[in-house]
Amino acid sequence: MATARIIESKSRGAGAANQSAALELARSMPRLTAEARRIASTAAAGIHGRRRAGQGDSFWQFRTFHSGESSSRVDWRRSARDGRLYVREREWEAAENVWLWLDRSPSMAFQSSLARVSKLERTIVLGLAVADMLVRGGERTGLFRLTPPQASYRIIERLAEALILDAERLDGETIETGDLPALSPINLREEIILIGDFIADPATLESHVAALSARGGRGHLLLIADPIEEVFPFSGESEFLDPQGGGVFRVGDAAGFAKSYRDRIAAHRENLRQMTSKIGWTFTIHRTDRPAIEALYALMAVLHGDVMRPSASVAAG
């Protein structure tokens, strides 16, 4: 029979172990560049080429000089080769803001004997790994409502620090960290990655998601689940404790109850799926008994927006 435990509050949150695990995970992936799917109006220069001419440092192409342009744009070295005037065009580099929201509610601090790690640990590792990937891909990443978006190469450490500080600030009022992000919208052209277990009333969830996407920002939900939550491998008389609300749910015969439990979980997930697809967001499920790299692949895939599905050959490259 499977057993489960609640991680004590002291050992929750992002620790050094999580950081190094995230780094390891991120480095084991090839350098993926986020697909330039939309043109952001933000003028901030980034190192991320947009595959078109624009502001940037790296060379894109030479084109002939059009009259009326500023003469300072003429590339004289190229123009000296033949009689025409050329203008050196640079690739347009623009950074995208990608927000991360990691669910650190008490229900996340849970690990069963079937799982390798707790849900919280997996969430933080995945979150930090994604942040690293994105920064390497030229995006600017920040924790939603915690840090400004930044493109530091030490993004993992930065975010981990912020998480630790936040955990200290919130110590004791774990409910506030909440199951869901705050009701403040992200901008158009920004993306948000929500990682958590999303155990909440579907209506509440929908309202939060709607608020986030109010300005047209795109979002991705990654549901982290412990296998025990999915499989419900119990039998006999049982009392189930809610780690978050503190409630007790008593079942006379757990084995007999398993069917209706699984139905309920499946319905909940279906709800989430419909809700997200309705507004063009993605919804992915990851179980903590699976390797974290799977979730990372999945996340990168949805970030690329179905254009390029990562395969094993890409991972090896």
Binding site: M108, D197, I199, E229, G236, G247
Partner: peptide, 17 residues
């Protein structure tokens, strides 16, 4: 009875065993 922590309890609270 055995006591088991289970985070998904809020989802199933309205179920009648």
């Amino acid at each position: 009875p055995q006591r088991i922590p289970l985070p998904t309890v809020p989802l199933i609270r309205d179920l009648e065993p």
